[in-house]
Amino acid sequence: MDKSNLLIIVTTISLFISVFLAFFLLTVKTKHRLSNTLFAVFLLITAIDTSEPLLNLVTDGPSNPGMLRNTLAFLQIPVFYLYVSSVCYSDFKLKPQYILHLLPFLMANVVLLPRFYTVDLASKMNFIINRQSMIELQFNHILFHIQIVIYLIAVFMLLRKAKRLYLENYAGTSISSYNWLFQFTVVLTLLYLIVMLKNILKFSDYPYVSESIKIGILVFQLFISCWYLLKALNNPGLFRNIDSKLKLVSDIISEEKNSNQTAVTEQEYNRDLLMLKEHMAEKKPFLNPSLTIQDISDDIGIPVRELSVLINHQLGKHFYDFVNTYRIENAMDILKDQTKNKVTILEILYEVGFNSKSSFNTAFKKHTGNTPTAYRKCM
């Protein structure tokens, strides 16, 4: 099988998987419809971008729609950034200012107007034949690479902040959503780095190497699409969001310093801490697997802002770890109770407020140094 046939086969399979996954995301019933729609758009743009080998079978030469298809690549990473934002924040909405994300795409097409979009077929052919010396295409490739770097940095910064906000304000198991999304972004970053290498070689003395890499990119895209599809099918409720109005504790403290707000006195700190500990011991709110700092604030009457500073700053623990400490200590009591030696580890983790075996094992080992099974055997 020659390289061109292999490229067509891989492209066909990749397109089918991408379109199928996009259809699934657009039709599945979920409260996170906007997130699904954005990722479906990302998949469809990617599918159109990689469809060149198939389109070459039915087209005779360069055309305006064909060039427009090429420049759609400028929309991929902005749509992915918006998708990540929608996953991270529950109150995410599309806003008029997001139209600015279209600028690179528009710039890439505007520079092509004089010598491609507005000329005859012969001139278009000449433009493509001499593409390595065409300043417009060189400009677009540089712009595309700059765009990728800027957006990927922005995505990683967004994920980092979202994870910190989650740890400071929530104690559910949804942290796995952000861990998985981070992994997905890392894999996508690797894919874009390969694309950048392909584009660089395209304008070098080794354009044939670029064609070989194209096959690898399509296979890689196929792998990513299948991975995401498997994750979506097995975990339909994976992603749960946080409120974007929440602030990091470090920002709250900085604001208080800048505004010269009166610091909490030692007496107030001790009073609030005692109230918090009594509430955790007596009411056991940690048994709620979806507990948030807002829930505890409502129960004991301490404003979220002050409670967040108390736990995340003054106690030196993320709210997530603070709550899990109580859950693990409760689990330890059950594991030590000989009358409950028939209760399974799975039953225990659900009883104390976890709803994920992996998160329970991780938290238990972090707190005790042992796995739950090993701890029970030592008792």
Results as ranks from 00 to 15, higher is better:
97 Q>L: 06
119 V>N: 04
194 I>C: 11
191 L>T: 11
173 T>V: 12
157 M>P: 01
110 V>A: 10
139 F>P: 09
104 P>W: 08
150 I>D: 06
122 A>R: 11
129 I>L: 13
139 F>K: 07
192 Y>H: 14
128 I>T: 11
149 V>K: 08
82 L>H: 04
167 L>C: 06
85 S>N: 14
159 L>F: 06
184 F>K: 00
110 V>D: 01
183 Q>I: 12
90 S>H: 07
159 L>N: 08
174 S>T: 13
121 L>I: 09
87 V>R: 14
72 L>K: 03
133 S>Q: 15
113 L>M: 14
101 H>C: 06
103 L>S: 14
120 D>S: 11
108 A>Y: 01
84 V>D: 01
165 L>Y: 03
121 L>V: 07
122 A>I: 11
141 H>K: 04
117 Y>C: 06
149 V>P: 08
110 V>G: 02
138 Q>Y: 11
189 T>M: 11
123 S>H: 10
144 F>N: 05
168 E>H: 01
179 N>Y: 09
176 S>W: 07
92 F>L: 07
66 G>Y: 13
99 I>N: 07
109 N>A: 08
185 T>M: 09
116 F>P: 04
111 V>M: 05
172 G>L: 04
100 L>S: 12
83 Y>V: 00
127 F>C: 08
99 I>E: 05
136 E>L: 11
119 V>T: 09
115 R>T: 13
175 I>P: 05
86 S>H: 10
79 V>Q: 01
131 R>Y: 15
114 P>C: 05
118 T>W: 01
169 N>F: 05
82 L>R: 05
110 V>S: 01
131 R>C: 02
68 L>I: 15
83 Y>C: 02
113 L>E: 06
126 N>L: 11
148 I>F: 14
190 L>C: 13
112 L>N: 09
118 T>G: 00
151 Y>F: 15
101 H>A: 09
133 S>G: 15
166 Y>M: 03
190 L>I: 15
169 N>C: 02
161 K>T: 08
97 Q>A: 07
138 Q>S: 09
88 C>G: 01
162 A>H: 06
193 L>H: 02
190 L>Y: 12
175 I>D: 07
83 Y>N: 00
141 H>F: 14
139 F>T: 12
104 P>S: 10
77 I>A: 01
194 I>K: 10
127 F>D: 10
134 M>G: 02
87 V>T: 05
193 L>I: 12
114 P>Y: 05
91 D>S: 09
167 L>H: 04
167 L>R: 08
192 Y>N: 11
148 I>R: 09
105 F>Q: 02
121 L>C: 00
107 M>A: 14
94 L>A: 08
106 L>V: 15
115 R>P: 00
129 I>Q: 12
175 I>Q: 04
166 Y>R: 04
155 V>G: 02
74 F>G: 01
147 Q>E: 14
122 A>Y: 10
104 P>H: 06
179 N>R: 12
162 A>S: 13
68 L>F: 15
182 F>Q: 08
194 I>P: 07
180 W>R: 07
115 R>W: 10
154 A>S: 15
